Amino acid sequence: MQCDYFDAGLCRSCTLMEVPYGSQLAAKESACRTHVDASGVTWLPPVVSAEAGFRNKAKMVVGGTLEAPTLGILDPQGRGVDLQGCGLYPPSLRASFPVLARFVTRARLQPYDVPGRSGELKHVLVTQSPDGELMVRFVLRSTEALARIRKHLPWLQDELPGLRVVTANVLPEHKAALEGEREIVLTQDDTLRMSVDGLDLHLRPQSFFQTNTDVAAALYRQASAWADEAAPRSVWDLYCGVGGFALHLAGPGRVVTGIETSAEAIESARATAAEAGLAGVRFEAGDATAFALASSDVPDLVVVNPPRRGIGAELAGWLERSGVARVLYSSCHAPSLARDLAAMPSLRPARGRLLDMFPQTGHFEVLVELVRA
């Protein structure tokens, strides 16, 4: 992938931009095998991604001036660097950026000046569904600009016909954070439908969804295929998010329970299950470790998809002691995966697969099937 921003030294976020894609994959496969250090593991061919245009979400820092706002990143001095032409986004998503920049000027949303700690608009977060519909979130310092956003919202909806959800997120603190806790929905719709393998996953503003839709779909299909081979009657999906794994693993005669701390994500998962008519699936908001430790039951299969920190010693210890026959571990951080595997010596890696969710970087997703020895 060629990138003018990278060549000009304006953005170096894609650390592997100059590395041929085949070499990127080989290095990631090597890292997987190194961290999943066990003999007898069968490694399936990696799931490859498009090298460009694969991101479904843009996290744009707003800089510049009211008349000439930038959407992109900040340089080391805290000044805005405009990246509206970034090739990681598909053309249909990139087409929304100039419109959003004009909206910043039209609605008088003063870009936040990090060095000076002044201004209102900190970030613009844009998510695109596979059908081309959009969710736009304006991350603001306060609610001062709400009336102007509401006033000019019809213009934005006219300019972006696929716009379904618009929110204002309030982040008053001066800190390195992407968003705040308060979310104000400004449109009739409050969820974006992410169609994956025939399921409409409902994505709410603060719900997590994988950044690469095609590779995420492959991840869910692989987990479903391995689960179907084992034919479990009961499944737990811990850290379930909007229910991607749980909903794909649901089926006749199978009881699936999804656990996630985000109440918004749980509501999204319940909505999808109800629309799809999936019986035997339930979702509860709560801490994954606390749920496991408090349960008197042990399922046939556990799926874990934790954040970068991994599942941690307590949950790994419970899985080791529980007697659960199989675990599907989806990890975005190989070192934490290795640490968790070391705490579960009775659950041996049997199969693994690299899924290249993040081309041009050293990051990746890996799915590992653990079988009790």
Rank of each mutant, 00 (worst) to 15 (best):
Q157C: 07
E120W: 12
L125D: 07
T167H: 10
E173Q: 09
S142M: 05
L171Q: 14
R102E: 09
V99G: 10
F138T: 02
T143I: 01
R193T: 06
E120A: 04
W155I: 08
P205Q: 12
K122D: 04
G132W: 00
L219T: 14
V104Y: 03
L171Y: 02
R204E: 06
T191G: 03
Q157A: 12
F208V: 00
E133W: 11
T105R: 15
S142I: 00
V170N: 08
F138M: 06
L160Q: 10
L140R: 08
T211Y: 01
L140D: 04
T187H: 04
D197E: 15
V166Y: 15
L109E: 11
V126Q: 01
T211I: 11
V165W: 03
P130C: 00
P205R: 15
P161E: 11
N169Q: 09
S92F: 03
L192Q: 07
K175D: 02
I184C: 04
L125G: 10
L192C: 12
H174L: 12
L146M: 10
R204S: 09
V114T: 10
K175A: 12
R193K: 10
L134V: 00
I149M: 13
E173Y: 01
E173I: 03
Q206I: 00
R164A: 13
A168Y: 04
T105D: 11
A107E: 06
T187W: 05
T213Y: 06
R94D: 14
S118H: 12
F208D: 05
Y220T: 10
L153T: 01
E183N: 13
V104R: 05
F97P: 04
R94V: 15
P111S: 15
L160G: 06
V114R: 13
G180C: 06
Q110M: 14
D113I: 07
R117M: 07
G116P: 02
F208G: 02
L203G: 04
L219I: 08
F209I: 11
S207M: 08
H152M: 05
L186R: 13
P98M: 02
K151N: 06
V114F: 00
V215L: 14
R148S: 09
P115T: 15
V196R: 08
L100D: 04
D131C: 02
D158G: 04
Q206S: 05
N212K: 05
L121F: 10
H202T: 06
L121C: 04
A218Q: 14
R117A: 12
E144N: 07
S207Y: 02
D189S: 13
E181T: 14
S92P: 00
T167I: 01
T213F: 10
Q128E: 14
D189R: 11
L134K: 06
L121G: 09
L109N: 11
R141M: 09
D158F: 01
A147Q: 03
